Amino acid sequence: MFRIVRTKDELADAFSIRKEVFVEEQHIPIENELDQFEEICTHIIGYIDEQPFAVARIRAIDNQAKIERVAITKPYRKQGRGHTLMKYVETIASEQGYTAIVLNAQYSAKDFYHNLGYQVSGEIFLEEGIQHIRMSKQL
């Protein structure tokens, strides 16, 4: 279901999901969604019946894994797939040698991450006009 992106086609699928969720649904400008870190991140993609439906990326920051761009397309939400995606991402981060994860969660998703063991480690802030909160977890 989930795997590390290895091909240009898989990366295109990942970007397609991010455009659908962040650009089209949340109205984030495309030039802000796709950034200068794309080439240095580990991208994760999920497929069901060869259809891409989920994405996340891992970026190294201060010897921690920063989880970013977590998205699931609408038809696959509220089915536990986000939980499974995050567990996979955590496994990959651990395999890459990280012992801690940080992320900037959209505030509306704070409880989702809290239920996965993430703790609030900052104040609410705006990113792209959306409330976020920094959260972290030890692996």
Score class of each variant (00 low, 15 high):
residue 5 V to D: 07
residue 5 V to G: 05
residue 6 R to P: 01
residue 6 R to K: 15
residue 6 R to H: 09
residue 7 T to Y: 00
residue 7 T to G: 03
residue 7 T to P: 00
residue 8 K to E: 14
residue 8 K to H: 03
residue 8 K to Q: 12
residue 9 D to Q: 14
residue 10 E to L: 02
residue 10 E to P: 03
residue 14 A to V: 07
residue 15 F to M: 15
residue 16 S to G: 02
residue 17 I to M: 06
residue 18 R to N: 07
residue 18 R to Q: 09
residue 19 K to I: 10
residue 19 K to C: 03
residue 19 K to F: 06
residue 20 E to I: 09
residue 20 E to W: 11
residue 20 E to K: 14
residue 21 V to A: 08
residue 21 V to N: 06
residue 22 F to P: 13
residue 23 V to T: 07
residue 23 V to E: 08
residue 24 E to F: 01
residue 24 E to L: 12
residue 24 E to T: 08
residue 25 E to Q: 14
residue 25 E to G: 02
residue 26 Q to F: 07
residue 26 Q to K: 11
residue 26 Q to R: 12
residue 26 Q to G: 06
residue 27 H to W: 12
residue 27 H to Q: 15
residue 27 H to K: 15
residue 29 P to C: 05
residue 29 P to H: 06
residue 30 I to N: 05
residue 30 I to Y: 10
residue 30 I to W: 09
residue 35 D to G: 10
residue 36 Q to G: 00
residue 36 Q to K: 13
residue 37 F to E: 12
residue 38 E to D: 15
residue 38 E to S: 09
residue 38 E to R: 15
residue 38 E to Q: 14
residue 41 C to S: 15
residue 41 C to M: 10
residue 41 C to D: 11
residue 42 T to R: 05
residue 42 T to L: 01
residue 43 H to P: 00
residue 44 I to L: 09
residue 46 G to Y: 07
residue 47 Y to M: 04
residue 47 Y to E: 10
residue 48 I to R: 10
residue 50 E to A: 07
residue 50 E to L: 02
residue 50 E to N: 15
residue 52 P to F: 03
residue 52 P to V: 06
residue 52 P to W: 05
residue 53 F to E: 12
residue 53 F to V: 11
residue 53 F to A: 03
residue 54 A to P: 15
residue 54 A to E: 10
residue 54 A to M: 08
residue 54 A to Q: 13
residue 55 V to G: 06
residue 55 V to L: 07
residue 55 V to D: 07
residue 56 A to R: 10
residue 56 A to I: 11
residue 56 A to K: 08
residue 57 R to W: 04
residue 58 I to H: 01
residue 58 I to F: 01
residue 58 I to A: 03
residue 58 I to G: 04
residue 58 I to Q: 02
residue 59 R to K: 15
residue 59 R to H: 08
residue 59 R to W: 05
residue 60 A to H: 10
residue 60 A to T: 14
residue 60 A to W: 00
residue 60 A to C: 10
residue 61 I to V: 15
residue 61 I to H: 11
residue 62 D to C: 06
residue 62 D to Q: 11
residue 63 N to H: 12
residue 63 N to S: 14
residue 64 Q to W: 00
residue 64 Q to K: 15
residue 64 Q to P: 00
residue 65 A to E: 05
residue 65 A to T: 00
residue 65 A to Y: 08
residue 65 A to R: 11
